[in-house]
Design a protein around this nucleic acid. Structure first.
Lengths: 257, 257
DNA sequence: CGAGCTTTTGACTCTCCTCAAGTTCAGTGG
DNA sequence: CCACTGAACTTGAGGAGAGTCAAAAGCTCG
């Protein structure tokens, strides 16, 4: 288990990033503030602050007091749940623009861990909650984002409950590939190339598998020409339709919807 | 597969229930309208109508146009996803006061099926969406409910991804038992008694198992004295703490949180 | 009483897990 | 420059848990 001690995380939290103008923010039109008018943005600007986290450090521990909520600006974090005997299940992957924390709740329900270096735009919880009641644009956007997350979680329940190990890996790869394509504004017709942002262990925790099974299935997909690997993390998908077939998804449906 | 033909469902939709005063509504303080003032309630009252569904009939088919949203007033429905080869996964259990449909989306993402006779309080989608922008109390409550559902979905991801068959069954039973206790305002200290609202097949679809495995594990829990069965559906839990241990949950944590 | 269900139980199979080595690779220090 | 170290990853052998197929037992309803 990659357990980083709490002291490190605290240290990281203190190395704050330089504040930034909301107008130049890379997640301006996707985050919880996406619908805000300039005056609302100004109000947010006054209560926001940035925090940096190192790869591997913990952002929040399940059960801890949550004094802030916020948006991922850059980097990737994971949301995980752990049983007493150590079995862990990832329940969310937090990407730039994703929201962290739950308004109206004081203690965290999940562990949040940065898997890459990460920057968050934070708001203290109390002022943010007050603002939410005054500015419906924030609450509207948050509802929309929460509904999207709920859809994603339900999609993932099908993966966890009914797909084979091979289909699970293919599903994860196709999700990462598609998200990478939309983020970088590439089409999904040519070959797709990306770096895996997760270790084999993290993939296993996401998919409800062991890391050995993840490794074996990746090797199998590589052997069968569904994916091409350079090193351990650099992936090329020669044929996205083929990958989606392997994932058990309707190849057309997934691309068109 | 229990496939009811579409003709039946249409027929059921026409047998509308008698309208009811919101003040007497059994789900008044838990549904999406929970926070509404009397004038807001009046406005809702004007656009609402009731629909009845027979046990086994389909409420909505995935991919269909969604012209309405609404609340479950009585009875139970399931939210399921199906792969092309027939593998199905339940992604939600809809109980009285739960909300059906997604504002802002025109086509349904999941199949909704009534597992018991059911009554829904429906609103046509367009007027409801207009009302949402005007009355923040509805949007607020919907956000809260959606966040709760997201938490429940994530809890379920741990069950699907990491628990054994026996733990899965115990988890489902403890969820139903606890919900039944809160609904009927009983404590969780004495023995709990309830009827299973699901067939073995539906339980299997919820848990990502086969119905044979569900049956075997229920028999095993019965043999070990964790549960007592009368007939196929009537369950007694002599010791809730024991059941929660079997579910892999911290017995205290689960009750106190 | 028999038809058609839901459910149980058994026998066998197979996927994925467990345990155990071994490989690759980046970083460190002699 | 090269051995050493520790992650991250791969691969293999064997085993356990859940799935598949098949048959039979309970219930419900005409």
């Amino acid at each position: 288990m990659t357990q980083i001690n709490r002291g490190n995380a605290m240290l990281n939290e203190r190395s704050l990033a330089v504040s930034q103008d909301c107008g130049d923010c890379p997640i301006r039109h996707r985050a919880v503030c996406a619908r805000c008018e300039s005056d609302e943005l100004q109000a947010l600007e006054e209560i926001k602050y940035y925090r940096k986290y190192e790869a591997g450090s913990h952002v929040i521990w399940s059960g801890d007091r949550m004094d802030f909520v916020g948006s991922v600006v850059s980097g990737i974090a994971t949301l995980t749940q752990t049983m007493e005997d150590g079995r862990t299940q990832m329940v969310g992957l937090l990407l730039p623009s994703d929201f962290v924390g739950r308004p109206g709740r004081t203690t965290a329900s999940y562990d949040v861990t940065a898997t890459t270096d990460m920057v968050m735009c934070c708001f203290r919880r109390a002022p943010f909650e007050q603002m939410m009641t005054r500015t419906p644009h924030i609450a509207q956007r948050l509802l929309e984002m929460t509904l999207d997350e709920l859809d994603a979680a339900r999609e993932w329940m099908l993966v966890l409950g009914r797909k084979t190990a091979r289909e699970k890996i293919a599903s994860l790869l196709s999700i990462i590939a598609r998200r990478d394509a939309t983020l970088n504004l590439r089409g999904t017709d040519g070959p797709l190339v990306f770096d895996l942002p997760l270790t084999r262990e993290a993939m296993a925790d996401y998919l409800g598998l062991t890391l050995e099974t993840v490794s074996r299935q990746i090797s199998a997909l590589k052997r069968d020409g569904v994916i091409v690997l350079e090193g351990k993390r650099h992936v090329t998908i020669p044929d996205m339709g083929r990958l989606m077939e392997e994932a058990g998804d309707d190849a057309d449906g997934g691309l068109l919807v």
